[in-house]
């Protein structure tokens, strides 16, 4: 356990933005916190990073209290802030060199730049970088001190889909190196793809925390099975199949809410017995997004609105 948060509460202008939050992060995992804008994700991460002092509760990061051991802590962790930028008039290698000078143990700038595909841009000005390149620079600066934990606050917000995918691979590489990753996002598929464990935050509270698999399986969410049948099957018949909860039918196109495995084996027997044929079978497992909606009832802004 590298991060331990106990009863964290933050008040901001008389409003409780984080309410009695407790959780731990294990060594070597990718821990994700998801939630709508304003749910308290950034406030929580900033308390842990040692950027805020106005909280109550207890935090230990690698055994250090971030309020007391700020300097010590910042030698051990790497931080990417939400929407940070750097001095536009500096070259990439200059800002890297500057950050490297803050630490005793440091990574080679050239190696990092090569790894993150920014080597050709070392002589470019920060102001001339694209959004994706800026975020890569942000990660490089977070990694320069060879940190044990890296904090990524909305790393992919504002990036195009291709850059976002690249970033995901980057984050997985960090994990392979043995670095613990704590990230926040409001993209469900991102959390689903990357995270070992996910905490769902709503209005300052953690409403669920588990592995993505468990979150999806343990909350009574059903699969959606859709198929086309050569003949019409009466709703009453399908309703009698085990685990079926809901049926939508149009022109012999069926979409069934159920447990896919149980339903499909029963359906199989049924169509063989009746000499029907089914086509275009598709099984949709519940996504993290479904879990999220179930918990929060909130609608996330779509990407376009960012």
């Amino acid at each position: 356990m590298v991060i331990e948060v106990k009863n964290l509460s933050v008040k901001y202008r008389e409003k409780n933005v984080v309410k009695n939050v407790s959780f731990t992060v294990n060594e070597g995992e990718i821990f994700g916190m998801i939630g709508a804008n304003g749910a308290g994700k950034t406030t929580t991460i900033e308390c842990i990073e040692g950027l805020r002092n106005n909280y109550s509760g207890e935090i230990r990061v690698l055994g250090i209290n971030p309020m007391k051991g700020r300097k010590e802590l910042h030698k051990l962790i790497g931080v990417q802030l939400q929407e940070t930028s750097y001095q536009d008039r500096l070259k990439v290698k200059e800002i890297c060199k500057l950050f490297a000078s803050f630490y005793d143990t440091k990574e080679s700038i050239d190696d990092l730049a090569k790894e993150f595909n920014l080597y050709e841009k070392l002589d470019s000005y920060v102001g001339k970088l694209s959004g994706g390149q800026r975020q890569k620079l942000s990660i490089i600066l977070a990694l320069i001190s060879k940190p044990k934990i890296v904090f990524l606050d909305e790393l992919t917000t504002g990036l195009d889909p291709k850059s976002r995918r690249d970033m995901w691979e980057t984050v997985l590489r960090l994990k392979k190196k043995g670095i613990t990753v704590y990230l926040t996002t409001h993209f469900m598929e991102e959390a689903e793809y990357l995270c070992d464990r996910v905490a769902i935050m709503k209005q300052g509270q953690i409403v669920a925390l588990d592995s993505v698999e468990n979150l999806k399986n343990n909350h009574g969410l059903l699969d959606k099975v859709s198929f086309r049948c050569s003949h019409n099957i009466k709703n009453e018949v399908l309703m009698k199949f085990k685990t079926v909860k809901e049926i939508v039918e149009r022109d012999n196109h069926f979409t069934i809410s159920c447990e896919a495995d149980t339903f499909l084996s029963e359906l199989n027997r049924y169509i063989i017995d009746n000499n029907y044929m089914i086509m275009n079978v598709e099984v949709n497992k519940p996504s993290l997004e479904d879990v999220f909606f179930k918990y929060t009832g909130e609608i996330l802004e779509s990407l376009e609105e960012q």
Partner: peptide, 16 residues
């Protein structure tokens, strides 16, 4: 501009 770009805050997250 350093405050708006959160450069000041970013420095707070270093040993400096």
């Amino acid at each position: 501009s350093y405050r708006e770009k959160k450069i000041l805050k970013r420095f707070k997250a270093t040993p400096m």
